[in-house]
Nucleic acid binder design. Structure first.
Length: 582
RNA sequence: CGGGGUGUAGUUCAGUGGCUAGAACGCUCGCUUUGGGAGCGAGAGGUCGCCGGUUCAAGUCCGGCCGCCCCGACCA
């Protein structure tokens, strides 16, 4: 491709509202444009990268015997209603009516349709497992799109589904996907953690998220520095500090406390005690607003709403608002850990396990002028539920090995899901077993967002000059830059371009003769093609062509006669660097 | 959906109620230049987000609507 003919050129400046580095670089480099919030156009350069990602993923799916298929974007609403997923998705699920008034959901995910498609073939145990994948557009009316391609309302996802006769067979496939995902990460240059995560209401006792450490990410995971434990904060097990455990229980009493002492920070100062000695209460409510949950943790911790929801058996919880506090006669800063007896039917008291491990706590029943001292769980109050509801923090003690947990910000790049019977139960997902009986299939689902993958690669492969693509997904392998108007130089460049292209090596030639060397180099740095060839009077004077890798500072002069050989060697070398030798 | 911000040339942005709305970059033409965002000259390019109001006069003030971004709660 000649750069002069490439549709979509570089631009000098990103919009100031583009805060994610990948967003800025993909925009200025001429890879993407925005149509409306969270909906992006891929320019030819961006689409080439997109296509490479799809190819790598497809190859790895085929390698574990997944078969590519495709389903429509419009899915009859009944598929969503059967498992009540239409309500669970709420406004995020987009809907449309056809001319007869029939309602369709716009493909937000495909479990329902795929389950019935497979069940419709009337499978027997001999047909299982069925493993299929597709690359299809997902439409989700996200509350907030952000970070360019990191989170969009419209994106192509590789979604795969597997159906099995037994849990054991499912686990084998789950493991295959785990390995395939790991391999995809390696091939496209992503450092990942396969994290245990909560699977929420969709069956399954766990699932794995493939998380890429990156400051632009929205997720938080913790990773143990000693053992392999890598886990989403919503599921992380960590050891509570055992404060005062040996101390005797002291006498419970109410102590005077100035009204302005409200926050944990104020209390620490007032009593000169560490945060973990205080009781902190946070109000949550169920989505229907019928139940209030008082979550109690020690003052050094925060409540994790996913953990809390799981503890009380809800899919999701909301933070309680002022009106909710008022409805039980409380207000901000004065929520009690016990004692709302007249609202007993509406309130669930949940205490973090850390509370039960600490002697002689402060607080938990603050009034306008007083607050209790020497509060002990079991003696002075009891909750309906004791559970792990706290968010782990950087430096917390690993629940698996007592090592130190590190808190890492990350991008959720991919997700593998164990559904058990959740969808097959709702969609008549039966197969005929050896004994002739109809049984429910075991099911799993596995997703990777293509646009997000693209953004994630940029987030993790750039410097202050621009992108530096891993060779596996680079839009072109070689960027030929010819300098100046000199006839000999440009004739040479043309012949090299034709030779390389003919050899089947993807090449972009910056053939512009009316721009300065500086512009060309800066554009090349920005676009980030891994191998750069420079032809100029200077390089010809040195008897050859200059070759420079995007990721390196130094360049070398190579002879024109074995150019193709050198290029092929370089490409193989760069590919090999991505995949660690086992 | 709550909080904060923003909307003016292709792009990034200036613009105190007052003349024909500006700059830089980019673009077009000519000449010079060509190893890290070149120089000179000439030129094209605007529904100041939309609707309404106040005013002799509105890009500027007021109201409403819309778009977009950021921070929080949810997800590949």
């Amino acid at each position: 491709m000649k750069y002069s003919k490439l549709f979509g050129k570089t631009v000098r400046e990103a919009k100031k509202e583009m805060t994610a580095k990948s967003h800025q670089l993909l925009y200025t480099g001429g890879f993407i444009r925005e149509l409306s919030a969270g909906r992006y156009e891929f320019l030819p350069l961006g689409f080439r990268v997109w296509k490479k990602l799809v190819n790598v993923i497809d190859e790895e799916m085929e390698a574990i015997s997944s078969q590519r298929f495709s389903i429509p974007i419009l899915q009859p609403m009944e598929f969503w209603a059967k498992s009540n997923r239409d309500k669970a998705w709420g406004k995020s699920l987009m809907k449309i009516k056809d001319r007869t008034g029939a309602e369709f959901a716009l493909s937000a995910t495909g479990e329902g349709v795929v389950t019935e498609m497979v069940a419709g073939t009337n499978p027997t145990y001999k047909d299982l497992p069925v493993i299929v994948h597709q690359f299809i557009i997902k439409l989700r009316d996200e509350k907030r799109a952000r970070g360019g391609l990191l989170r969009t309302r419209e994106f192509v996802m590789k979604d795969a589904y597997s159906f099995h006769d037994t849990e054991e067979d499912f686990m084998n496939t789950y493991d295959d996907f785990y390995k395939a995902y790991s391999r995809i990460c390696e091939r496209i240059g992503l450092n990942y953690y396969a994290c245990i995560a909560d699977s929420g209401p969709l069956g399954g006792d766990y699932c794995h998220e493939f998380q890429i450490p990156c400051d632009a990410g929205e997720d938080h995971i913790v990773k143990c520095e000693k053992c392999d434990y890598a886990v989403n904060v919503e599921k992380a097990e960590f050891v509570r500090k055992e404060v005062n455990k040996k101390e005797e229980m002291k006498e419970y009493k109410m102590a005077d406390l100035p009204e302005k002492v409200q926050k944990i920070k104020d209390l620490m100062k007032h009593y000169d005690m560490p945060a973990e000695m205080f009781i902190k209460n946070v109000l949550y409510k169920t989505l229907d607003g019928k139940k209030l949950i008082i979550a109690t943790v020690t003052g050094d911790l925060d409540v994790n709403s996913v953990k809390l929801a799981k503890a009380v058996g809800e899919d999701e919880l909301e933070i309680g608002e002022d009106v909710d506090l008022k409805s039980i006669g409380s207000k901000t800063g004065y929520l009690h850990s016990w004692g709302y007896d007249e609202h007993k039917d509406r309130i669930i008291y949940v205490v973090d396990e850390g509370i039960t491990k600490t002697r002689n706590l402060y607080g938990g029943y603050k009034t306008a002028t007083q607050d209790p001292l020497n509060v002990n769980y079991g003696r002075d109050f009891e909750a309906d539920i004791v559970a792990d509801i706290a968010e782990p923090y950087d430096g917390a003690i690993c629940g698996k090995c007592r090592g130190v947990l590190k808190l890492i910000r990350s991008i959720e790049w991919g997700h593998i899901f164990k559904y058990d019977h959740f969808y097959t139960k709702h969609h008549d997902g039966f197969f005929t077993d050896r004994d002739g009986q109809k049984k429910l299939m075991y099911m799993g689902a596995y997703g990777i967002g293509i646009g997000r993958s693209l953004a994630t690669v940029v987030e993790t492969h750039h410097d202050d000059k621009g992108i530096s693509w891993p060779i596996s997904v680079a839009p072109y392998k070689v960027h030929l830059v010819s300098l100046g108007e000199d006839k000999a130089v440009n004739k040479k460049a043309l012949s090299l371009y034709e030779e390389i292209e003919k050899a089947g090596i993807e090449i972009l030639w910056d053939d512009r003769i009316d721009v300065s060397a500086g512009v060309k180099f800066n554009d090349a740095d920005l676009i980030g093609i891994p191998i750069r060839l420079i032809v100029s009077e200077k390089s010809l004077g040195k008897g050859g062509i200059e070759m420079k890798l995007r990721k390196n500072k130094e360049s070398e002069i190579i002879k024109a006669d074995n150019l193709l050989e050198v290029l092929r060697e370089k490409i193989t070398q760069l590919e090999d660097e991505l995949i660690p030798k086992k």
